[in-house]
Design a protein around this nucleic acid. Structure first.
Length: 580
DNA sequence: GCCGTTTTCGGCCCGACTGTTTTCAGTCG
């Protein structure tokens, strides 16, 4: 039997069931149940197949008796007969239509039944020929919206990495503030405020008495390519590079409820509203409403949570992954903050593929208030990066020692980003690694090896007593390269045993470990290092992305290596993995 | 479909915007 399906594949199957049921007009709560289960499975840190093997499927939120039975069949046989039956009832092209913005289950079913349309291609042809407007409840405008939706889908079907979306959002906010200097408050909300690794669309929130001038200024910002909809409280535009941006304007006295609502996530909000109902409130973006209709306004977000008997919950945690329960029980973690960080453990210089000298990198780190910086240039086998030979490594040591005489409040350490070779050996011999202060071991080649091979490489590195940190463990590049097939659960278990740290690479194209595996690292007691993998002084600014990812994984400062003081760090580097 | 500090049955978040509507359906978040 082949490999069990991944969580993502299973989630996709359940979403497919949900979509087909939706088109067939099934009970919407049943549809939602499939989608909710899919979301929950996708955010599990371990393979669902592991839960299944241990008979713990029902422990996953959203999996009840019926779904457990279907998943059991899938994991036993590789098939799900229920889905196969459903697929015979609706052509796959009709299901695909749900991907089109503006097209939902009703529309998909309508064009299928009335016009016999069974693909996005046919839908486009029919729309262009003006045949959709003949359908009941449809007109020329709807037809045009659908056509625009099909084109938008072709232009941008994927989510945008946060590193691309965030600067766009900041520029739009700055543009608004410039156009309306008297703007009371303006903030990013939505998945961007939660620091999700990819962003579907950008949500902006503004407090103002009069929304009209704000909306007017917004649609005339230079980056706006198209106005999708325009109302009193909500306006949506598409930017020139295809990002959708929603702007909402609320009166200042309702800022708290509005910010809470527009920050999401949807799952968090639903859970919060259910809690509100139990307490006799109805919660919306405008107010908490009592059963007698009386409104309780919240100008600050804290007031919303307080009214529901909860402490304020950091946006990074708002995914309905247990944060509401933890808040209710006073168990919210004290999350790591950028200000906790004392140094950087992964930085390159001109000795390999960095753009700045060791001295420039050190001064930049020191200027940020860091107390230490580990220089980790590439090892010899990575030719394209100018990896260092053993001799060069020793020359570099002299340079670092010379520079260190300069400061009393700051220290350079010598490390290396040593390549984990295709056969699992490290790119420097042990006696060379032993001379280094801090060793980051990473995989840059052979990323397409099968699961056993690539996992074995990582495990060998983790168990080498000279290796302190496993760099960017999954090897993914958001939007460019999928994660390798590495078994991260095995990696985390081995790291817990060996006392080796795992990196949370802060580069917004990596964010690797990701949030759910950081969470698992916290459960297992695995230390993490939040690293910029800096190749220039400017890269130190990327730390915010890494800290946010760690926070999304419930990371606390006591588990973060570079939150240690220099003394503590040196002690840790000296003793870990050596039985000390 | 799931789920339970009232419920193993009867609930299941709440509202904006648009278009084609004489009062609402569909989509979205």
């Amino acid at each position: 039997m082949g490999q069990p399906p991944s969580n993502r594949q299973i989630a996709a199957l359940l979403r497919r069931i949900g979509n087909i049921l939706d088109i067939l007009g099934e009970n919407r709560f049943k549809v939602m149940a499939y989608r909710r289960a899919a979301d929950n499975i996708e955010s599990l840190p371990q393979d669902l197949a592991d839960y299944w093997r241990e008979g713990r499927l029902r422990e996953v939120p959203g999996i009840g008796e019926a779904l457990a039975g279907k998943l059991d069949e899938l994991l036993r046989t590789g098939r799900m007969s229920y889905l196969e039956r459903l697929e015979q009832q609706v052509p796959s092209g009709v299901v695909e239509m749900l991907e089109i913005p503006e097209v939902g289950p009703r529309t998909a079913r309508l064009v299928w039944e009335k016009l016999g349309i069974t693909s996005i291609q046919e839908l486009e042809t029919a729309a262009k020929a003006g045949r959709l407007r003949q359908l009941p409840g449809m007109g020329a405008k709807t037809e045009a919206r659908i056509l625009a939706g099909i084109q938008a889908l072709a232009r941008r079907s994927h989510r945008t990495p946060i590193g691309e979306a965030r600067p766009v959002a900041m520029a739009l906010l700055a543009g608004l503030q410039e156009a309306i200097p008297a703007l009371e408050r303006a903030m990013v909300a939505g998945s961007l405020r939660r620091w999700k690794e990819t962003i579907g669309d950008i949500d902006l929130l503004v407090a103002a008495r009069d929304s009209e001038p704000v909306m007017e200024a917004f649609v005339h910002l230079p980056d706006v390519a198209e106005v999708l909809l325009r109302g009193d409280t909500k306006t949506s535009i598409r930017t020139r590079d295809g990002l959708q941006v929603d702007l909402r304007v609320v009166p200042p006295e309702r800022w708290g409820t509005a910010l809470q609502y527009f920050t999401g996530s949807q799952a968090h909000n639903i859970a919060l509203r259910e809690r509100a109902l139990k307490l006799g409130f109805s919660l919306s973006e405008y107010a908490l409403k009592r059963e007698d209709g009386q409104e309780l306004l919240c100008a600050a977000e804290e007031e919303v949570y307080e009214a529901l008997g909860l402490p304020w919950i950091p946006p990074e945690l708002r995914e309905d992954r247990g944060e509401i329960e933890a808040a209710a029980e006073g168990r919210l973690p004290r999350l790591i903050e950028t200000a906790d960080l004392q140094g950087e453990l992964h930085a390159h210089s001109t000795w390999s593929d960095g753009t700045a000298s060791i001295e420039e990198m050190a001064e930049a780190a020191r200027a940020r208030g860091y107390r230490y910086l580990v220089i980790t240039d590439h090892s010899q086998s990575l030719g394209v990066t100018g990896g260092l030979s053993v001799d060069q490594l020793r020359e570099q040591r002299a340079e670092i020692e010379r520079l260190n005489r300069r400061w009393t409040d700051f220290r350079l350490l010598q490390g290396a980003e040593v390549e984990i070779l295709a056969d699992g050996a490290l790119d420097y011999p042990d006696e060379v690694l032993a001379e280094l202060d801090c060793v980051v071991a990473s995989i840059h080649s052979g990323l397409r090896q099968n699961r056993e091979q690539i996992t074995a490489r990582a495990l060998a590195a983790i168990r080498n007593p000279h290796v302190d940190i496993l760099g960017h463990p999954s090897g993914r590049l958001l939007g460019h390269r999928e994660a390798s097939d590495i078994d991260l659960e095995a990696v985390l278990q081995a790291a817990a045993e060996a006392g080796t740290a795992l990196e949370v690479n802060a580069h917004p194209a990596r964010l690797d470990l990701d949030d759910v595996h950081v969470r698992r690292a916290m459960e297992l007691g695995v230390p993490i290092a939040i690293n910029c993998d800096a190749h220039s002084p400017g890269d130190f600014d990327l730390i915010v992305y890494g800290v946010a990812t760690a926070r999304r994984g419930w990371a606390t400062p006591d588990r973060v290596l570079n939150a240690l003081s220099l003394d503590q760090l040196e002690r840790w580097l000296h003793t870990h993995g050596k039985g000390g």
